[in-house]
Design a protein around this nucleic acid. Structure first.
Length: 423
RNA sequence: GGAGAGUUGGCAGAGCGGUCGAAUGCGGCGGUCUUGAAAACCGUUGUCUGUAACAGGACCGGGGGUUCGAAUCCCUCACUCUCCGCCA
C-alpha cells in the first residue's frame, strides 16, 4: 500500500509513475487525495471537540472531589451535547477512513525508474543470458514423456487422488525433489539466511499484509470452515513473521529462507503451456526474504539476483534474466527480475524465479518498521525471491540432460540424491 | 468435541468509574563510580495521529453500549491458556 502522505505531496509524480504500468485511473489518485483532505479536516474538528469534552470531564471530577456538587452539576448539564456531536464526527471519520483505505488498496506500487515501459511479457527487457542451450538428439522428448518413461512422476495418479495439477513423485523422482530442497536450503543458509518452517495456512490479515488479499483472492485456496488460506508462496507466512514488528536497526538485514509447498488455484489455465510440470496447483519452492534499510534495498535486490543466478549456474542450466516491464510486473512490486531457464525439448524459457523489491509497499500494510538514526520510526523495505521453484527446474534438468543412457543428475545434486543417473 | 480461566507498555505484573498512557520489577538507553568490566546509584525509555514547532487527539484483544467521564461496569466477537476426550 502506498503511503497517503506521499501521494498527497507527490500527486503528479504518482500518476506519472503509475502510467508506466498502464495504470490510468488518475481519478483514483485524486479521490485518495480528496478523501485524505476531508479526513484530516474532520479529524481536526473531532479532536477539538474531544479536547473540550475532556476538559469538562476533568473539571467535573475535580469539583466532585472538592465536594462542589452544584458547580459540577452545572458543567455536567453543559457537557451533554458533546457526546452526540463527537459521535457524528467520528462516525463520519470512520466512513472516510474506510473509503480511503478501499481506494488506497486499489493502487499498485510505483515502478522503479529503471522499469521499462510496456504492456506484456514481450516488452520485458532481457538483462543477460547465461550458458549454452544444449543441442538435443533427434529423439529428444519433453519432460512429461520422460517422467513416465522413467516412472518418476505419475500425473494420472495425482489426478485420481486430488485432481489435475497435483503430481505424485515416485522413487528417484521423489528423492530428486528432496535433494533439490536440501541443496537450496543449504545454499541459502550458507548465504546467511535463517531457515524457518512457517505454517502453510494463513489467516486473512497475513494474506492482506503481503498483498495477496484483496486483489488476488481467487488465486488462493480458501478453507471456508476455518477461514484460512493455503499459502501460494512462503513469502506470505515468512514476511508476516515481522508484521507489526519494529526491527532494531542493528538487526538489519533480516534474512529468512523457507521451504514450503505452494498452492495455487490458477483458475482458467489450460492448454499446452501448462502441460506436465509447467504449471501446477501444488509445487515445492524455497523462498528467500529480506527486510532491509530503505537506502540499501536496491543493492540487496542485485545481491539476491546474483544469489539466485549462482544456483542456476551451479545446476548448470542455461538461463536468462529479465527486467519486467511496467505492464508485466506484479501489483506490489517496484522492480522485479525474472529468471528463466531454457527448456531444451519444449524449446522455450520457463520462469523459475522472480526476485522483487517491494520497497515500503508491503511494509506499510504489514507495519514493519525500524527506528532510524533520528529516532523516528520508518517503514523497512521488503524483498523476496524464489530460490528456487522446483517443478520447472526439474523439467529443465530432465529435458536438457536427457541422453541415451538416461538423465544425468547435475554434479552439485549428486551428494544429495545419492545417484548420478535416472535410468 | 466438553468444562473452566484469561487477554494491560519489549517482557513480567498491579490497577477503588475521575488526578491512568497507566504502579512496580526486569530488560533497553544515557550518566556517576572504575584502569576496564560487574555491582551499586541517578536519569531516561510505548505506538499512531497532528503541528513549522508547541498544543491537541487516539490506543490497556476487536466491536458496540452505559456515563459529564471507562483499563475499570454491561453486551458481543475473536484469540490464548488449563483440565478432560481424541490424536501424528
Amino acid at each position: 500500500m502506498l503511503q497517503v502522505n506521499y501521494i498527497r505531496e507527490n500527486r503528479d509524480h504518482v500518476i506519472e509513475r503509475l502510467a508506466l504500468r498502464n495504470f490510468k485511473q488518475t481519478t483514483l489518485v485524486d479521490e485518495v487525495v480528496a478523501l485524505d483532505e476531508q479526513r484530516r479536516q474532520i479529524q481536526t474538528e473531532s479532536d477539538a471537540l474531544a479536547a473540550s469534552a475532556n476538559t469538562s470531564a476533568r473539571q467535573i471530577g475535580e469539583l466532585m472531589r472538592q465536594g462542589k456538587r452544584d458547580e459540577a452539576e452545572a458543567i455536567k448539564a453543559a457537557s451533554g451535547g458533546y457526546k452526540e456531536q463527537i459521535k457524528q464526527l467520528t462516525d463520519r471519520l470512520g466512513e472516510l477512513e474506510q473509503q480511503l483505505h478501499e481506494k488506497l488498496v486499489l493502487l499498485p506500487n510505483l515502478p522503479h525508474t529503471s522499469v521499462p515501459a510496456g504492456v506484456g511479457a514481450e516488452d520485458n527487457e532481457v538483462v543477460l543470458e547465461h550458458g549454452n542451450k544444449p543441442s538435443l538428439a533427434e529423439d529428444a522428448v519433453p519432460h512429461w514423456e520422460l517422467t513416465s518413461k522413467y516412472g518418476i512422476i505419475d500425473f494420472e495418479l495425482g489426478t485420481k487422488i486430488t485432481g489435475a495439477g497435483f503430481p505424485v513423485y515416485k522413487g528417484k523422482g521423489a528423492r530428486l525433489q528432496r535433494a533439490m530442497i536440501n541443496f537450496f536450503l543449504d545454499r541459502a543458509q550458507q548465504a546467511g539466511y535463517l531457515e524457518v518452517q512457517p505454517p502453510l495456512l494463513v489467516n486473512e490479515a497475513s494474506g492482506f499484509g503481503t498483498g495477496q488479499l484483496p486483489d488476488k483472492e481467487g488465486q488462493m485456496y480458501h478453507v471456508g470452515v476455518d477461514d484460512l488460506y493455503l499459502i501460494p508462496t512462503a513469502e506470505v507466512p515468512v514476511t508476516n513473521l515481522y508484521r507489526d514488528v519494529i526491527v532494531k536497526e542493528a538487526d538489519f538485514p533480516v534474512k529468512l529462507t523457507a521451504y514450503t509447498p505452494c498452492f495455487r488455484r490458477e483458475a482458467g489455465s489450460y492448454g499446452a503451456h501448462v502441460r506436465g510440470l509447467n504449471r501446477l496447483h501444488q509445487f515445492d519452492k524455497v523462498e528467500v526474504v529480506q527486510l532491509v534499510h530503505p537506502e540499501r534495498s536496491y543493492e540487496v535486490l542485485e545481491e539476491m539476483s546474483s544469489y539466485v543466478q549462482s544456483l542456476l549456474q551451479a545446476l548448470d542450466l542455461p538461463y536468462r534474466v529479465l527486467r519486467l516491464c511496467g505492464g508485466d510486473m506484479g501489483f506490489t512490486s517496484a522492480l522485479t527480475y525474472d529468471m528463466e531457464v531454457w527448456s531444451a525439448a519444449q524449446q522455450r524459457w520457463l520462469e523459475v524465479s522472480s526476485v522483487s523489491n517491494f520497497e515500503s509497499y508491503q511494509s506499510n500494510r504489514l507495519k514493519v518498521r525500524f527506528k532510524g538514526e533520528s529516532g523516528k520510526t520508518q517503514l523497512v523495505h521488503t524483498l523476496n525471491g524464489s530460490a528456487l521453484a522446483l517443478p520447472r527446474i526439474l523439467a529443465s534438468i530432465l529435458e536438457n540432460n536427457q541422453t541415451d543412457r538416461g538423465i544425468r543428475i547435475p554434479d552439485v545434486l549428486v551428494p544429495y540424491t545419492g545417484f548420478e543417473w535416472i535410468d
